[in-house]
């Protein structure tokens, strides 16, 4: 075999291997998707059936039984709402830490990260009781507040690591031209970091959409987002996998497709810019 042929063979083998791994890891999702178009009988047939006449019946029943639209709307409101609020609070903080670092900046950042280390169960009881006393149980307001605070440290970190890499000269030039701090942020920093801010927002939306601890414990029906709606399908032990799959597909599809489009930015974001 010549060197060239060897190289070609290596490429083919790598490709085969990579495709196998990817297909194995993706299989459960593929199966969920396929099952959602089956009848209940086909869903539990052994051996598993791969070819069948697809039906949309399950999706109709899911909407009827648990009002998908209502829960999807809750998910949208809580994840987008809390992301917007968190960004408004985090941008000034990240800006001031990145451009005017003090002696304590690093400590403050590490402290913020350490609040993420505080396990949610440690404060479950007080938060539950506070929500109960202020009539916030099963309300979107409570979830928005909690999601905002939950993701704030990560958002500050990410924005900070992006802002830090912006060339300082541009800001100095703007200042020479008489820009006020407000102009600096609005006319220079923000336009330069549209990409950074949007990938931060994406990550925060994904984390909120899939958050399950608080939504399971603090909501029942009115404010229940999709994560909690799906959990309600776990209790009755009946065999209704087709409907379960339809509900799951509906719950995950928006965020999975959303994730496909921005997976590259998400990696950068989730690793605080440490991996590029």
């Amino acid at each position: 075999m010549t060197l060239n042929q060897q190289r070609k063979l290596k490429t083919i083998l790598t490709g085969l291997f990579a495709w196998t791994v990817a297909l194995v890891l993706f299989f459960p999702i593929f199966w969920m998707f396929i099952t959602s178009f089956k009848t209940e009988l086909q869903a539990i047939s052994v051996p598993p059936s791969l070819f069948f006449e697809p039906t949309l019946e399950n999706f109709r029943i899911v909407q009827e039984r648990s009002d998908y639209i209502h829960h999807a709307w809750n998910s949208v409101v809580t994840s987008f709402g809390s992301t917007i609020i968190a960004l408004i609070i985090a941008i000034p903080a990240a800006y001031s830490m990145a451009f005017f670092p003090g002696k304590r900046t690093k400590d403050i950042l590490l402290w913020m990260l350490s609040t993420k280390m505080l396990p949610a169960v440690g404060v479950l009881v007080p938060i539950y009781i506070l929500c109960r006393d202020y009539g916030l149980l099963d309300s979107k307001t409570a979830l928005v507040i909690i999601f905002t605070l939950m993701n704030l440290p990560i958002i500050v970190w990410m924005l900070f690591s992006y802002f830090k890499d912006l060339p300082k000269e541009i800001l100095e030039a703007a200042r020479m031209d008489g820009a006020t701090p407000w102009d600096e942020v609005v006319k220079v920093v923000l336009p330069l970091s549209v990409g950074a801010i949007s990938s931060t927002a994406l990550l925060s939306i994904v984390l909120c959409w899939n958050e399950a601890f608080w939504s399971l414990n603090l909501t029942a029906s009115d404010a229940a987002p999709l994560t909690a709606m799906i959990a309600s399908y776990s209790s009755p032990e009946g065999l209704f996998w087709a409907k379960l799959s339809a509900a799951s597909t509906l719950a995950c599809a928006p965020i999975v497709v959303f994730g496909w489009f921005c997976q590259k930015q998400l990696v950068q974001g989730l690793t605080f810019g440490a991996v590029k």
Binding site: V21, A22, L23, L25, F26, P28, I29, W31, M32, T35, V206, W209, N210, A212, L216, L226, T227, A228, I230, A231, Y233, S234, W241, L244, S245, S248, A251, C252, I255, V256, F258, G259, W260, Q263
Partner: peptide, 22 residues
């Protein structure tokens, strides 16, 4: 894209798929 997908599946759905279908 296929590889990253499981990361976006919400934990409740993850558990249900594995518990039942797998």
């Amino acid at each position: 894209v296929l590889l990253i997908s499981p990361f976006f599946i919400m934990p409740t759905v993850n558990a249900l798929i594995w518990k039942n279908m797998m």
